[in-house]
Nucleic acid binder design. Structure first.
Lengths: 342, 342
DNA sequence: AAAAGTCCCGTGAACGTTAACAGCTTAGCA
DNA sequence: TGCTAAGCTGTTAACGTTCACGGGACTTTT
């Protein structure tokens, strides 16, 4: 008798049958089209409720040629910066009604898998927040992803025809190091992040800028490369003190590594800031609670994430409407927060 | 002449036409079906490459009645625990070939929006990692989400017919407090997380367990509620010292708040562990670098996330095959890591 | 030499929704 | 009275893929 299969989700046709109307009319009710009489609308809504009908976004995407999904390529959740970025992206995306398809990259080898997945899922735009620095990147993206969906890159080198939103890492680093110089420090070390990443490289350049502007030397023995983790900051300080024993201040490329530096200094009996000044980068909320409280560079990655979504949203809407858009690259300005460690 | 629209993605039919075969044959090549001659396979693959054809996962999902997507409901990226969980989930999901549709909940008011979105996107399973403690939860889920997709809950109270994977927070807290008691401390305070969350409540119960087992009192003045942030730990210690001045040790419900406690103690001139022992919960990598290094409870949320994906994968596969599955709730055992702060 | 099996390939329908169009009714107007 | 417009509803086709089925060519078996 009952031709509806058990355990089968109700479709728009089931609703139509129950309400005694056509599928098209149900569709009109679902999409708030005006051309439906109040009486029919109510009947349809009752049928929807009774059958617990839920629209199928996949079918809708297929016919509409618009999935309502944007892809996000992130580098993980471990560190403060990426996490803040994701938070901003997520917040703005749900506010504008976009769904997020999340992809985590750990190395350039993941690019192919990620691009394939995003294209298959018909994402309408991509926010690429894996800040790798590679010469092949541009060629690759143009071939693969770009023909299918617009991309906005975050925190990387701007190439031609690419839109990149970022924080001015170089400026931030310069501010940090200038501050150390103003406090009378002259022998300033650097614990950098992985130099394959644009942000790490920019922060290093900012450190060089400040030293050069003050006529101070910057040599390889003043630099150690970490991996953003506290533990690497800890090791970094030990190595740095061996390479560069006369150091009286250190600029650390993120707050988590700076925490390791504070720890190591404490262990070694070095007073901060008396014997060694320390400045970090990120201004995580925890940094105010370090012992001693950390001087650091503040940047608003939450805002950057939000902005990225708003921009991709603009591009996508314009595309749908067949209008041309221009969005341009942009850099947010960071600033220094002075606390006890300098 | 050329009937293919400009800017239009190639479809399986375009490939078929170019290769001189039917769409079905192209489909067979794409899905590695055996019944294709080597010669045809090559012709099709050449056509795919030439047209830069990419399969449309939405169309495939629609006909296959299987989206290959699982929904993840998270509480954000700010704190160590949730971030670890997400990392484990993401890693295992890509390993098993699942796509992730990410939803962030900040309050129970978000449930409706999130469930609607996940159902619309035809997720085949849901990992619910927003650890809220609410009596209405069960009723709600049975009505809404359960009929559409299996759910695994993480870190919450197990109800009937619900599968919950979690860490034994209560045990972890008991271990921490027993350790403090073994070190001779008798007046042990608690800085808890938001008590609307199951994990925070469990940790509080573990603290009570240990005190009760040792015949020690536990009163309201020994407790302060924080919000997981370092800053709230800082404030928490101040409040707690006012309410409970004779305190000689404190169990802090997560490491980030413990950082705030260490900071506040340092500011107040309290020696840790001499005047005040501190034990945290989480064992974030940074905790080993706190000043002093933090004694804390280690739990493996990465493994928990992986496990959750493996279990939902099992359930989904069984469902597809029409087989019954039983998965059962489970608790991972945490352990104590003793460092300098106790 | 017929029957059966294997290999390879194509046809038509279906998944759940919406776009485009057509058609019917009623109202308004000259 | 006839004409136009407005309001509401239904029909058909389409989105891009796969499933179920059928069938031809060739090989093997009896």
């Amino acid at each position: 008798m009952d031709s509806v299969k058990r355990n089968h989700r109700a479709t728009i046709r089931d609703v139509a049958r129950l309400a005694g109307v056509s599928a098209q009319t149900v569709s009109r009710v679902l999409n708030n089209h005006p051309d439906v009489s109040e009486q029919t609308r109510l009947r349809v809504q009752r049928a929807i409720a009774e059958l617990r009908y839920r629209p199928n976004a996949l079918a809708r995407s297929l016919i509409k040629q618009a999935s309502g999904v944007i892809g996000v390529v992130a580098s993980g959740f471990h560190f403060y910066g990426p996490a803040q970025l994701l938070t901003g992206i997520e917040r703005q995306a749900t506010e504008l009604g976009w769904q997020l398809m999340l992809q985590v990259a750990t190395a350039p080898e993941d690019y192919d898998r990620i691009a394939t997945a995003l294209i298959a899922q018909q994402v309408e735009g991509v926010i690429w927040a894996y800040p790798e620095l590679s010469s092949e990147r541009e060629r690759w993206f143009h071939q693969q992803l770009r023909p299918h969906a617009p991309i906005i890159f975050l925190s990387m080198e701007a190439g031609p025809d690419e839109v990149v939103l970022s924080v001015d890492n170089r400026l931030g680093a310069r501010l940090a190091v200038e501050h150390l110089i103003n406090r009378g420090r002259r022998r300033i070390g650097l614990i950098s992040g992985p130099l394959s990443l644009w942000s790490a490289q920019q922060r290093r350049l900012g450190w060089e800028d400040a030293l050069a502007a003050a006529g101070l030397p910057h040599t390889e023995r003043q630099v150690v490369q970490g991996d953003w983790s506290a533990e690497s900051g800890c090791r970094g300080l030990h190595t740095l003190l061996q390479q560069y024993p006369e150091m009286d201040a250190v600029f650390v490329s993120n707050d988590q590594m700076a925490l390791g530096v504070l720890h190591a200094a404490h262990r070694l009996g070095l007073g901060v800031p008396k014997d060694l000044s320390v400045v970090g980068f990120d201004d995580m909320p925890e940094s105010a609670c370090f012992v001693p409280a950390l001087t650091t560079v503040h940047h608003d990655l939450f805002a950057l994430g939000q902005l990225a979504v708003r921009e991709i949203d603009r591009v996508i809407r314009a595309r749908r409407a067949g209008q041309p858009v221009t969005i341009t690259s942009l850099m947010l300005q960071p600033y220094l927060v002075v606390r006890e460690s300098s």
